[in-house]
Design a protein around this nucleic acid. Structure first.
Lengths: 215, 215
DNA sequence: TGAAAGTTTGCAGGCTCTGCAAGATCCTCG
DNA sequence: CGAGGATCTTGCAGAGCCTGCAAACTTTCA
């Protein structure tokens, strides 16, 4: 799946190093004072490159915080493929959740990095905006996949888009709650709970540990 | 409900006029060439005011397109109140939908303005999210209201936030589809269909006119 | 080793947005 | 009606983001 770790020359190594350094510094500074109080110059200077170079790596300042994944489209395609490959018995909602699972696990595995990121994002709405702005293309791919799996028409039917947006909402809610809990439970657990609640038609919860307080 | 239409001096009249002119011009220009190809100077010049004045009316360029409502917090509070006042028999999802209903009807009543707005927003996705991922403040108010209605704890329980985000997703999906259909059906109808589907646990649709294609 | 390919950087410049202070306009009250 | 005060508008300066462009530099590869 992961494409390559072949030769990997000096040039490529340096680039990754610089990129990683920019991300790391940016996250640290933004965690300290909020992204809006950190200029591109600050980040670039501390990384020992020019501000112009910063923009060779990231199209916008916000992306240094958000854009951990260098290839979001590829990731989306993989989710779409997983969706189509999911067990036939799964309902659409559960199938989508199942397809997203590996990426949610990744968040749990990189817990601290993600918690830091989310803290920064919560503090600066501009990041929230940019986070979803990129996703036009991804959205289409996933909606198409849902349509294919359900035998509906991506552009003519409402259902695929609705499902996509609803699961997106669940994802957001789970992420936010996870952050509130300081990552003390797995994101996957919260997400699963959200999906089950949705699959049940969002009834008022009664005695569900994860949905209610820690108890 | 609408607070006042008392005296209304010249000054206030002029301000509203300027504001309205800016909005109108901005929407027209953005519809023609996309918001990113319209500068604040363009808008201000055509409205006969300085660019500096533009920023006295709108905190950011995007707000001239989105910020139709001068008091989003007040509107949010009204939705929250309506949520608590909704018939006791309604399930949480339906109660929220019920509370939002008046504002959805407003969109239908101002159909063309909104279609134009959404066209612009669709072309510049950053605006889409900003539209719903409104202010943290609004979110808190609504989540609190959901918590109160369901007898849960807004900060300790997951359910209120989840419900809020899911309904937000439904709203987005409905809006997008409404725009695709060129407003040929009422947004309210699409929204209701979305809510019913969610209340049913998002089953694959069968023979539902609104959810499937026009047939 | 030397050309080809890829990177970094400074520079110029466009654009968004903010504070500030001067000037124009409206409103209120005597 | 005519101050005097309140409110708006505007120009200006300046910080910041971001983009081409071309020169200088580094890595790669034949």
């Amino acid at each position: 799946m992961t494409e390559g770790e072949p030769p990997l020359g000096l040039r490529e190594r340096k680039k990754r190093e610089t990129r990683a350094k920019l991300v790391k510094i940016a996250i640290r500074l933004a965690a300290e004072r909020g992204l809006e109080n950190v200029t591109v110059d600050d980040i670039a200077a501390e990384a020992g490159v020019s501000a112009r170079t910063f923009f060779n790596y990231f199209p916008a300042k916000e992306d240094v915080i958000l854009h951990a994944d260098p290839d979001p489209i590829g990731q989306t395609r993989r989710i779409a493929a997983a969706l189509l490959a999911a067990p036939a018995g799964l309902s659409p909602v559960r199938a989508v959740a199942h397809a997203m699972r590996p990426y949610i696990d990744e968040v749990d595995d990189d817990r601290d990095q993600w918690l830091a990121r989310i803290t920064i994002i919560e503090r600066d709405p501009a990041l929230m905006v940019r986070m979803f702005a990129t996703h036009k293309e991804s959205e289409r791919i996933l909606v198409d996949a849902v349509a294919e799996r359900t035998g509906l028409d991506a552009s003519g039917d409402f259902y695929p888009m609705l499902l996509f947006k609803v699961v997106g909402g669940a994802m957001q809610a789970a992420t936010q709650r996870w952050h509130e809990l300081g990552g003390s439970v797995r994101l996957a657990e919260l997400f699963d709970a959200a999906i089950e609640t949705i699959a049940a038609g969002l009834p008022v919860p009664v005695g569900t540990a994860v949905l209610e307080g820690k108890t």
